[in-house]
Each structure stands twice: as C-alpha cells, then as structure tokens.
Computed example of a mutant assay.
Amino acid sequence: MPAIHAAMGSGAENRAFGLTRRTRVPTEATEGAFAIWEEEIPAGAGPPLHVHEREHEVFTVISGRVRFVADGREHDAGPGDVMMIPPGVPHTFQGKEDAVATVMLTPGAASNFFAAVTEAGVDPATDMDAVIRIAADHNIRFVGPPLD
C-alpha cells in the first residue's frame, strides 16, 4: 500500500443523516484496514444510537463541542479530545455547538454505509426501515433514537 496524502478540503463529500462528511482516506486505499473522514456536526445534530459490530470508531474533535454517549455514559468533548468506541458498544453523539471532528473507523469497510444510503436515495427521516437494511449490510445496528 502506498503512502497517502489527503490535502485539506480534498475527498468525496457525503451528506447522509444531515451531516456533511468528507472522506479523507477511503477504505479502498488502505485495503480495508481503516477509513478516515472529516465530519461537520451542527449543534443539535447527530445519528441514532447504534452499534458497530466489528469496528473501532475514533473521533478527534477539531473544533466546537460534541456530546458523546457510549455504553450508557456521557462524555463532553472539545477541541483536541479523542473519543474511542470499541466494537459492540452502543453509542451516539450530538453537536453541543457547531463542531468538526475527524473520524477513523477500523477496519474501514463499514464507512461505505454513508455512500450506500446516498446511492439508494434513502432519507433516514422518511424511510428508516430502508436505512436499517443498508446498515445491516455494513455490520451496523441501530438500537435507539438520536439524543434530544
């Protein structure tokens, strides 16, 4: 595998779940070892409570503040903070204020979930059943609602 340089602002953009993310290192470039993306997390926004069956998910908050709930515990993260969620742990997050985070998923194949949702033209707000089916193909399970 060659070295990878991802210039600031580069990478494919995706807006599944109302969050803008830009793929910095796609899983295909790492032979599935990991994927990295940058995610904009508006205040009040975040995904439903979910579980990655096989993946570690690592967030590094770049700016703003993010409220994480992982395994029933709440964590308030700000710039420079890292939140690591191991496989099998129910988790979600929400912007406490507009925030940006870098996210790494390892192994990385489940990162293609966002593209699959977009390609299917599915909106979680109106067709969560379809999103759940797509998530199952990527070893992701939804287990509860987003934070309020």
Results as ranks from 00 to 15, higher is better:
M1Q: 14
A3Q: 12
A3C: 15
A7N: 07
A7E: 09
A7G: 05
G9A: 07
S10F: 05
S10E: 04
G11F: 10
N14F: 11
F17H: 08
F17G: 09
T20S: 11
T20Y: 01
R22G: 10
T23D: 05
T23Q: 09
R24P: 15
V25L: 10
T27D: 14
E28S: 15
E28P: 15
A29K: 04
E31V: 05
G32M: 13
A33K: 09
F34V: 02
F34A: 11
A35N: 15
A35E: 11
A35R: 10
I36N: 11
W37T: 07
E38D: 12
E38Y: 04
E39Q: 11
E39A: 14
I41G: 00
I41V: 15
P42D: 01
G44L: 02
G44S: 02
G46A: 07
P48D: 03
V51P: 06
V51M: 08
H52A: 12
E53Y: 14
R54P: 12
R54W: 08
E57S: 06
E57M: 04
F59S: 02
T60Q: 12
S63A: 15
S63D: 14
S63F: 03
R65T: 01
R67E: 06
V69R: 04
D71M: 03
E74Q: 07
D76I: 05
D76K: 03
A77T: 01
A77H: 08
P79G: 03
P79N: 06
V82T: 10
I85C: 13
P87M: 11
P87E: 07
P87F: 11
G88C: 10
G88L: 08
P90E: 03
T92S: 02
T92K: 05
T92F: 00
Q94S: 09
Q94W: 02
E97S: 15
D98T: 00
A99T: 05
A99F: 04
T102K: 00
V103Q: 03
T106A: 14
A110H: 13
S111A: 09
S111K: 01
N112P: 14
A115V: 00
A115P: 02
A115Q: 03
A116Y: 03
A116I: 04
V117A: 08
V117Y: 08
T118A: 05
E119W: 02
A120T: 12
A120N: 09
G121I: 13
V122G: 05
D123R: 13
P124T: 06
P124F: 04
A125I: 06
A125N: 09
T126P: 15
T126C: 14
D127C: 06
D127N: 06
D129I: 05
D129N: 02
A130M: 01
I134K: 05
A135E: 05
A135N: 10
A136Q: 12
A136T: 06
D137T: 08
H138T: 10
I140Q: 13
F142K: 03
F142E: 00
G144A: 12
P146H: 02
P146F: 01
L147S: 10
L147G: 12
L147V: 15
